[in-house]
């Protein structure tokens, strides 16, 4: 086996590249298999953030290759636009401070000022929604 052929690592790198926001976790968003993963999913769902999710449990090599790629030893791992945002602790911290919404490019429900009336007709200019 050639050492530069690493289909699992390639697939992980591709998933990170192709998905704007992607969470590597234990279990699924519907059924997280670990409290840290559950909390991270909850933080994303609280923002209505669209994200792709990968369950790392089915194959231990996924975690091994992911951690080698990201230089991050624990699960979950959240990536946005190809960059590691953090694990459960960082996501929790960012979620509490409102930073998570900013980082993910989401409008923040509670602190976003409502557009003022003098802005004219329906404020359609800004679309922060991810599709």
């Amino acid at each position: 086996m050639s050492s530069d052929t690493n289909p699992i690592r390639d697939a992980i790198a591709e998933a990170i590249r192709d998905n704007k926001t992607i969470l590597f976790m234990k279990g699924t968003p519907e059924q997280p298999a670990c409290g840290f993963s559950a909390r991270t999913v909850a933080a994303l769902q609280a923002l209505d953030a669209p994200f792709a999710a990968v369950d790392i449990l089915p194959d231990p090599r996924i975690r091994q290759e992911l951690s080698a790629l990201s230089n991050w030893p624990t699960i979950p791992q959240l990536f946005h636009e190809g960059e590691l945002v953090g694990g459960a602790d960082i996501v929790a911290e960012m979620s509490g401070s409102g930073e998570l919404a900013d980082t993910l490019g989401l409008a923040q429900a509670e602190s976003a000022p409502a557009p003022e009336a003098d802005a004219g007709p329906a404020p359609l200019g800004i679309e922060n929604r991810l599709t």
Partner: peptide, 13 residues
């Protein structure tokens, strides 16, 4: 923050 945590995680490999 990522780099700060990586520094600490690196202690334990």
């Amino acid at each position: 923050r990522i780099q700060q945590h990586q520094l600490v995680y690196a202690v334990f490999g």
